[in-house]
Amino acid sequence: MTLNNRCTPFQKIFFLTVLTLAVILGSFLIGRYPLSLKEIFGILTSKIFSVDPFWSEQAQTVFLNIRAPRVLTGCLVGCALSAAGAAYQGVFQNPMASPDILGASSGAAFGAALALLFGADGFVVIACAFFFSLLCTGTAWLISQRTQGRQILGLILSGIVVGSLFTASTSLIKLVADPTDQLPAITYWLMGSLAGSGQVTLIFSFFVMFIGLLPLFLLRWKINVLTLGDEEAWALGVNAKRMRLIIVFCASLITAAAVSISGIIGWVGLVVPHMARRLVGNNYRYLMPASMLIGAAFLPLVDDVARNMLSSEIPIGVLTAFIGAPFFLYLITAKGDVA
């Protein structure tokens, strides 16, 4: 705590940036096929300058086609889920909000299950999950426009309702899926994994997330004002309804991109923003970048464990729950405010 009080938020953000870069670099090294720093440096520079390869062909393939895309996808997914979680908590004025509050995960799960049922694989599954995730949050939003009373409550309730309809539909798909190959594929997808990441998914997620993350970063100060409620925000010069639409849209977009690539990875979007709150406080000016950075370090780190701890890979969604849930218990019982 003394360190916490001695540094300015700016220094903390800088420290987190360094930490995230270190985690990325470290994650490049470890794996079933270990790579050395020198090899990685060589492979990277050979893309720009001509360097005589002192590394094996295999090392280059592992790094460029498997290791780097996976680690970087993990960064993006972690960053997106954390930023979305922080954003939702702000606009819903609720510290317990997480990225799947509007049913983004339920929608993605349904989309992926549907695609797997029809024998699709690879990018088709991702595209289908992405589409249904957006459809789910979009439907929740449209219904909330017709609810009476407080708009936020209406939005949360319609998110729960639409989400549970999609979850029920997913169960139905599991029921009719072929138990020898389709059902396991669906079940594994639902547990979450970054194993499917490749260069294509990395490029897809980078573009979609850039579109969503940039406004969230730029509008972070306005989220502070939104946490005070619609009327106060309006009187302070922020059109709450419009601003919330923009922020919920961006957060839903990046959540959809994240869960469609990685499957259901729970807890990250709830726990990481709270870690960031402990570190830099509730001012979104620092909270948003801190959440993004911690998320971008946290998920590759957990994925390192997921792919290296046992001889077979552990689904990352299982691990984040095992790490996230106890950590959250610590947060809510430790000294100081939850929010």
């Binding site: 004025q93 306005k222 946490t227 005070l228 302070l236 010069g237 406080g281």
Partner: peptide, 25 residues
């Protein structure tokens, strides 16, 4: 409030009315 802000940040939010676009204080 839903979240705890420092008194300074709370007062700083008043300046939002005259902040253009994406600017932060």
């Amino acid at each position: 409030t839903a979240f705890n802000f420092s008194v300074f940040d709370m007062v700083l939010m008043g300046t939002t009315a005259r902040l253009k676009g994406f600017r932060v204080p």
